[in-house]
């Protein structure tokens, strides 16, 4: 089978590859994670669609933006190991660092089957236990002929899509309502992706230190408690 075709495409010119990568069925392990939504549901902070909307909006503009920018920088061609280090500094919770690396490793497996290339092999060899997922995603996007905006869009969407799906399962929330929450966030998703892509490009010349570091205290706090629960539906 010819696997060289994706490599010939100019970065950012591909579109269908973005659909493959951003598809919730892309086998990279995301389905087992709630993005902090399970802890928020248990604490009574998410009870209905309006709470979910506020949760998703907050996550999008904090860890969503930070992750999207890391992915954009990787897609733009910045050094993935320096980005991995920047991701560590932006992830004070050990539970979330472990989750990010686990998901990075799972994504790496799918990515190397879908878009095999030297850059992915090199990152897998340098971080056999997994690099931070957004970094792997950015390198994957580049391998698929996608650009920084695409990578940023993909990560920004994941940052809210996961919690929305999880809350449907956790609360029996009407799936149409959950989807409507995501649809109404679309303009902000675009905005975050654009900001992340600009920052990602800037990081090429100015270094990863200039990337956004937006964080969410409750996500960091509750991730640790959640990781210690004996009974839970989601891994994070």
């Amino acid at each position: 089978m010819d696997t060289t075709s994706t490599h010939g495409a100019s970065p950012g010119a591909a579109r269908a590859a973005l659909l493959v990568l951003a598809d919730g069925r892309f086998p990279a392990g995301g389905h087992a994670h709630s993005g902090g939504a399970e802890a928020a549901v248990k604490a009574g902070r998410i009870r209905e669609a309006t709470d979910l909307a506020a949760f998703c909006r907050g996550r999008l503009h904090t860890s969503g933006l930070t992750s999207a920018a890391l992915a954009a920088a990787a897609a733009a061609g910045a050094d993935p190991l320096a980005l991995d280090e920047a991701a560590d500094a932006r992830t004070p919770s050990p539970a979330l660092r472990a989750t990010a690396r686990k998901l990075g490793r799972q994504l790496m497996r799918a990515a190397r089957a879908a878009w095999p290339c030297d850059a992915l092999d090199a990152l897998a060899a340098a971080r056999p236990r997994g690099a931070h997922q957004p970094v792997v995603l950015g390198v994957t996007a580049r391998a698929a002929g996608l650009g920084p905006e695409d990578a940023a869009h993909c990560v920004a969407y994941e940052s809210v899509g996961g919690p929305a799906t999880a809350v449907v399962r956790l609360l029996g929330l009407d799936p149409f309502e959950a989807t409507a929450v995501l649809a109404r966030l679309a303009p902000e998703l675009d905005q975050v992706a654009r900001r992340a892509a600009e920052a990602g490009r800037r990081a090429l010349t100015e270094g990863p230190g200039t990337l956004p570091a937006a964080s969410a205290p409750l996500l960091d706090i509750t991730a640790q408690a959640h990781a210690a629960w004996p009974v839970r539906l989601f891994a994070s």
């Binding site: 086998p27 389905h31 087992a32 497996r109």
Partner: peptide, 21 residues
Amino acid sequence: AVETGACPHTAIRDDISANLE
């Protein structure tokens, strides 16, 4: 133990990445 996000059939059939790990 692999955590499945309430969907064991997904983890053994559609997205086997966590199990392979």
